[in-house]
Design a protein around this nucleic acid. Structure first.
Length: 203
DNA sequence: TACTAGATCGGCT
DNA sequence: GCCGATCTAGTAG
């Protein structure tokens, strides 16, 4: 596993190009000396002004302004009254593109993640699979909240590193989940067969 | 000022 | 498989 931080130039491509390339990379939230991290196994691309499902579709607002930053920023938003979701902002400044991180395979700080999610580190088999297999779950397990909105992924709080190589035949594609507009776009990417993805079947 | 939908999750049937 | 929790931004009146 390669834990070198990814350089900022990586994030300058458009969301659709970048989304599959984020698979196999490692997302880390560093809290003092504690590292909470996992391999990215599932993502969705959200385009700029032509994608009706994207928060950016109706233009820049106070809530989504981070999406319009230059690629490499971290966009966190609150939804359904109780959940945070986290995104990697991509592309040029003003393009309003991002990649939603939907699932991780936990690799370090697992005990702390279990406490964050379930209130104890009792480690039943089912808990580990259930720990980070959804966007709201990731944020809870990694202690990601609105205070990280706008952080740079090249910084020291929240960052992405190289992780492991992913072969192109490991990557599966499907339509996106949980949206009501532009539902036909095949913009979801995940590692085929990985037990930590949020839903097994392609749609 | 009020209503509603939302990139979700967990519990219940 | 269905439904409620719980809050915020957007839209309508």
């Amino acid at each position: 596993m390669n834990f070198r931080k990814i350089h900022s130039g990586f994030y300058k491509k458009d969301a659709l190009t970048l989304a599959p390339r984020l698979l196999g990379k490692v997302l880390t939230h560093q809290i003092d000396d504690l590292l909470l991290s996992g391999i990215i196994v599932e993502v969705e691309a959200y385009g700029g002004l032509e994608d009706e499902a994207s928060h950016a579709f109706r233009g820049m607002k106070n809530r989504n302004k981070v999406m319009f930053e230059e690629g490499g920023a971290f966009y966190v938003y609150f939804t359904y009254g109780n959940h945070f979701c986290c995104n990697v902002v991509t592309g040029k400044k003003g393009s309003g593109e991002a990649v939603l991180i939907r699932a991780l395979e936990p690799i370090s700080g697992v005990d702390t993640m279990l406490v964050n999610r379930f209130g104890s580190d009792i480690n039943q088999k089912n808990d580990l699979i259930n720990l980070t297999n959804g966007p709201g779950k990731i944020c809870k397990a990694l202690a990601i909240d609105g205070s990280l909105n706008g952080e740079l992924l090249t910084g020291d709080k929240i960052y992405i590193s190289e992780g492991r190589r992913v072969k192109s035949d490991e990557i599966a594609v499907s339509t996106r989940i949980g949206i009501t507009k532009s539902i036909e776009l095949p913009w979801r990417f995940y590692l085929s067969g990985n037990p930590y993805v949020s839903r097994k079947k392609a749609i």
